[in-house]
Design a binder for these strands. Structure first.
Length: 454
DNA sequence: TCTGGGGTCCTAGGACCC
DNA sequence: TCTGGGGTCCTAGGACCC
């Protein structure tokens, strides 16, 4: 596969720097932004509990296994990302650190607010993750750019209620670099702009190569073997070297470092290739009936996600895993693909196939830690193949679709799991360990009532 | 005591065909 | 008897992201 600067974005380039071996650009037609919320999950907790701003607090992963977000004060106290809870429990108690369970329904709604707010400042917004957005500016004034950046940060932080940082630069990768610099920047304005040749070079010279978007631990180790330690070191390698020693993704990264845009904006998110729901059990389980209920729950959730995205699947994967960290216990990991007779997103169909798979891979006598269901080979609902089917199957499909529709409308109105399939269950052993869940301040009326009274 | 969950992209290599 | 070599398709697994 050949790497070419994106054809549309190619038009941005107007002048090429004559000096140096490579392409370094002096002027750009368009500008990219990367906005991200600082300590997003913790920040959203502070919004409705203002006293938290003066207390150390963290947000925990499911089952309170590790830290996934830290408040400013917790960061200053030395609490790190992904630290295991069991190592920290005593210290946290001593330091008075509050540990919140994660509440993704609430975070998603806050993320939507951020997206809508930021959209008013640029031509295209792309949701990159729950707490990051890419922006594209088709027109801007070079001298006024820093001031525009500060205005976006000020207005969004105030309007949404959670602090943001912004990086502005001529490619997505450089915008990521600028954003990281903004987080560390001592001037506290929350913005870094990289738009001249000199600014970009200076930034890359001080930027560790392992912090680049797309360079993980494996590449970092490989690059250090070649004495490549900074982003500038990598950018100064000849293209053929990158081609020979790395992948096409790295080649794109190399172009982007040099100001040639290769990673286009994705205004409309592409259709998903697969959808997965999986959970670790709070405590290991070997009982088949309990695992069957968990798999039914996950399969129901996959079917719901499919319907929400207007997709059908043609195959279901089930997997079952023992606790990989308990190396002294006997291990068993397995998965299986079960093909569907026809495309479907109906809960009963997906669940029955998932259970068929589970029965095939379940072995008695193991302490299982995690199970999950994945739906694969996804196609849009609009691709109908009913004409090719036997009448009986077509009829069954229609019945299942109606049933799922009824299920969705009841559950959307009265809350998740108001109506369930018989195979599902919410036994105590299957419940997540989430002792300190914050209210869904923005999405659930009963929770909203709580805060207005309290 | 416990170590998340949900994704994408790319490459290598096997199977198969001509 | 020789057994090359180009092409496609599929899958497992690695690497990376938040």
């Amino acid at each position: 596969m050949q790497v070419q600067p994106d054809s549309e974005l190619d038009n941005y380039l107007t002048e090429i720097s004559p000096e140096n071996s490579g392409i370094w650009l002096l002027k750009y037609r368009y500008m990219f932004g990367l906005a991200d919320f600082s300590s997003f999950y913790c920040g959203t907790h502070e919004l409705f509990e203002p006293k938290l701003r003066f207390l150390p607090h963290v947000t925990m992963s499911n089952n309170h296994g590790c830290i996934i977000s830290r408040s400013k004060i917790a960061k200053q106290m030395g609490y790190g990302m992904s630290q295991n809870a069991f190592e920290l429990v005593k210290q946290m108690k001593k330091d008075g650190v509050i540990d919140y369970s994660s509440n993704y329904e609430y975070y998603q709604s806050m993320s939507n607010r951020g997206f809508n707010h930021v959209a008013q400042f640029c031509d295209i917004v792309e949701r990159y993750s729950i707490d990051e957005l890419f922006m594209l500016f088709k027109q801007w004034d070079q001298d006024a750019l820093p001031a525009l950046g500060r205005e976006i940060v000020r207005s969004t932080t105030k309007g949404v209620g959670v602090e943001i940082c912004l990086g502005l630069a001529p490619t997505k990768l450089l915008a990521k670099v600028a954003n990281k610099m903004a987080k560390k920047s001592p001037d506290k304005s929350g913005v870094v702009v990289l738009q001249t040749d000199a600014q970009i070079r200076a930034a890359l010279q001080d930027f560790p190569v392992e912090d680049l978007w797309g360079i993980g631990p494996a590449y970092a180790k490989f690059l250090s073997g070649w004495n490549i330690y900074t982003a500038l070191d990598l950018a100064m390698q000849p293209e053929y070297w990158v081609k020979q020693n790395m992948t096409v993704q790295s080649q794109r990264l190399w172009y982007e470092l040099r100001g040639v845009s290769c990673v286009p904006m994705e205004e409309i998110p592409p259709d998903k290739k697969h959808i997965c729901t999986s959970r670790s059990f709070a405590k290991t389980i070997d009982d088949f009936d309990l695992i069957l209920k968990a798999v039914s729950n996950h399969a129901t959730s996959c079917a719901y996600k499919l319907r929400k995205d207007k997709l059908n699947c043609t195959a279901v994967v089930v997997f079952l895993q023992t606790d990989k960290f308990r190396t002294e216990q006997k291990q068993y990991n397995n998965d299986i693909v079960i093909k569907l007779d026809v495309y479907s997103n109906a809960a009963r169909v997906i669940v029955s196939k998932a259970l068929e798979g589970l029965r095939k891979i379940y072995r008695k006598g193991y302490a299982y830690k995690k199970t999950g269901v994945m739906v694969i080979d996804l196609i849009p609902e609009s691709h109908q193949q009913t004409a090719l089917l036997f009448e009986e199957k077509t009829h069954n499909m229609e019945v299942e679709a109606k049933l799922s529709k009824a299920l969705d409308s009841i559950n959307n109105r009265y809350g998740r799991n108001t109506v369930q399939l018989g195979a599902q269950g919410n036994d105590k052993q299957l419940q997540l360990n989430a002792p300190n869940l914050c209210p869904c301040y923005t999405t659930r009326i009963e929770d909203i009532m709580k805060i207005s009274i309290g």
